[in-house]
């Protein structure tokens, strides 16, 4: 399992899992799971287009992701967010259907891009993964507090001069970068699952932002590793294991939270103490 041809896979998968875990925390917080699904699926025809033009798949993916982000941003202004994400997804995917019908020899490639095939990662693939992951991580670290505030309390963020439109766009760009980076390596399904499942589980278990953030990264890495191991042993597609392990994780977290809330409901709600005006007085 740790043979030399697998080393690249382990490295790439770990980097992708960490990045996805970090960004996924905000995906779940901002309730943009649909966008996190629409961008990878919508970007997937980019690979077909790249093959048609004979360029690197990464460029095709980046182009389609850029189109997706721009469309999403515009359509969100027109109406409901989920409708916008759905329309972007189907529009990009329809162009994918057209491109696929033009390149007849793309059948097996479709499967790999949709559901992932992590066993064939070359050293050349590692470089873009590392660079883009670094960019995304720096981006998230710079934007951590504004993103957190804007995701949890949009009105407060506006009061502090954080514009919703700008944050939204930056977030979507980060999401798009992760998508384009991870897609050729792990496929659309895995990108989406890694973005949503660990963060959702973490936020079910802990309401403390930093703790949930760390837990989300840990769970993402754990999910990725276990899926690769299972896939290696059984020879079944890795997408299935990510989905199955993820659903199990989330369901057990839900059950755990339910039991804990039953157990805790016996404790009374803490009364609020009196305000202390002295704290607020300005020194004269």
């Amino acid at each position: 399992m740790f043979a030399s041809f697998m080393i690249n896979t382990w490295i790439a998968a770990t980097i992708i899992a960490v990045t996805a875990g970090i960004l996924g925390f905000f995906v779940v917080l901002r309730r943009s799971a649909f966008a996190a699904h629409a961008l990878p699926i919508g970007a997937f025809p980019g690979a077909a287009a790249a093959q048609l033009l004979g360029i690197q798949p990464l460029w095709g993916l980046l182009a389609f992701v850029a189109v997706g982000v721009a469309l999403l941003q515009q359509l969100q202004r027109l109406g409901r967010r989920d409708v916008a994400a759905g329309l972007v997804l189907v529009t990009l995917m329809a162009s994918g259907a057209l491109l696929l019908s033009m390149t007849k020899a793309y059948g097996p490639g479709v499967f790999a891009l949709l559901f992932g095939e992590v066993l064939g990662v070359s050293s050349a693939d590692l470089l873009p993964v590392t660079i883009i992951s670094a960019v995304v991580m720096v981006g998230v670290i710079c934007l951590y507090r504004p993103l957190l505030l804007q995701s949890a309390f949009p009105a407060l963020a506006v009061a502090r001069g954080i514009r919703a439109g700008t944050t939204d766009l930056l977030f979507l760009i980060l999401l798009g970068l992760v998508t384009a980076m991870a897609l050729p390596v792990v496929g659309t399904l895995l990108v989406f699952s890694l973005l949503v499942v660990p963060a959702a589980t973490a936020q079910t278990l802990s309401s403390h932002p930093t703790r949930a953030f760390v837990l989300s990264v840990v769970l993402a890495v754990g999910l990725m590793w276990s899926a690769i191991a299972f896939s290696f042993w059984t020879d079944w597609p890795i997408g299935f294991f990510v989905g199955a392990v993820g659903a199990t994780l989330f369901s057990s977290a839900r059950i755990f939270r339910f039991v804990r809330s039953r157990w805790r409901s016996t404790t009374a709600v803490a009364p609020s103490g009196p305000l202390n005006p002295a704290v607020f007085t300005r020194p004269t």
């Binding site: 699904h37 949709l114 949503v196 997408g239």
Partner: peptide, 24 residues
């Protein structure tokens, strides 16, 4: 709703991957 849908979608697509693999 967002998260619940995401989990079901992930699991269902995983199942789909498995069945397509069997098809192939």
């Amino acid at each position: 709703q967002d998260v619940a849908t995401g989990i079901v979608l992930g699991a269902g697509l995983g199942l789909s991957a498995l069945f397509l693999y069997f098809d192939i």
